[in-house]
């Protein structure tokens, strides 16, 4: 959900591949049973303790048999990432070691981790890296490019869309984030459903009752609701970290500008 944080955790761990654990505000408690490895963590602001001792977030450590790593939700963010110097030993499914809980594919039986699961690692490798943590992402509007159906919305609605804050609600998962339209931007605007077209992460679709939903990484492949815009790649991770109850304001940019943001974000 937050690719930048995933990348940072990997750099901190000296990761040799892209496997890792995405954690939600449910937190995570890990015990090293045998061997040892490096681990890096990043994403949002979680509380992490190694053997009861608080460590900075983001950060990294070398851990060995008997060590206990406890992560609990902290001051900010929805998603944290744990990456390891060694490779997580998981099956390759459709060219990936990722888990899709929606399609029940990959990982451990295609599901989220639960207490009692044992994770194994293959191959040696990884040394803890000292990586300069980048500045926290700038606050401010979430930038988007106008979408394929933007011209189906009246000019007045488009203007209000960029002037009015929306509130992130608790109806959020890897598929989408439902927003509360407290400013009534889309109240009374009814657009009939359209022919289904492909969807991309970050698409902002407006349901028939005027509810905006931002489609996220596990979005359905196609959809027939009108989409007013698409959040730029550079801001999608930051959007994913916004907690329910917080406000979000959208600001339009050109695709050229979105590409500049992508380039400047690359390490």
């Amino acid at each position: 959900m937050d690719i930048d944080a995933h990348r940072l955790a990997g750099a901190l761990a000296g990761a040799s591949d892209k496997t890792g654990i995405e954690l939600t505000r449910a937190g995570l408690d890990l015990l090293v049973e045998s061997g040892g490895l490096t681990v890096g963590w990043a994403g949002g602001a979680f509380d992490v303790q190694l053997n009861g001792e608080r460590r900075p977030w983001p950060g990294s450590a070398s851990i060995a048999a008997g060590d206990r790593l406890c992560i609990a939700p902290g001051a900010a963010g929805n998603y944290g990432y744990l990456r390891f110097g060694k490779k997580l030993d998981l099956p390759m499914v459709l060219g990936s070691r990722a888990t899709s809980t929606r399609a029940r594919l990959g990982g451990l039986e295609g599901r989220a981790l639960r207490a009692g699961d044992v994770l194994n690692f293959s191959e040696e490798g990884g040394t803890v890296q000292s990586v300069c943590s980048p500045d926290p992402p700038e606050a401010g509007p979430v930038r988007f490019v106008w979408g394929i159906h933007a011209d189906k919305f009246a000019a007045g609605i488009r203007r209000k869309f960029v002037e009015t804050p929306f509130r992130v609600t608790s109806a959020m998962d890897r598929m989408g984030v439902r927003l509360a339209d407290e400013g009534g931007v889309f109240a009374g605007s009814s657009i009939l459903s359209l022919i289904s077209d492909p969807i991309l992460p970050g698409d902002i679709q407006i349901l028939g009752d005027g509810t905006p939903i931002v489609l996220m990484r596990d979005h359905q492949p196609t959809g027939g609701y009108p989409r007013i815009g698409t959040i730029v790649s550079a801001d999608l991770g930051r959007f994913a970290q916004i907690r329910s109850g917080e406000a979000v304001v959208f600001a339009p940019v050109s695709v050229d500008h979105a590409h500049q943001l992508m380039r400047s974000g690359r390490p």
Binding site: I148, P198, L200, T230, V232, S233, V255, A258, H259, M262
Partner: peptide
């Protein structure tokens, strides 16, 4: 244009 990484 569909977002910043796709065309339709």
């Amino acid at each position: 244009l569909l977002g910043d990484s796709a065309l339709l």
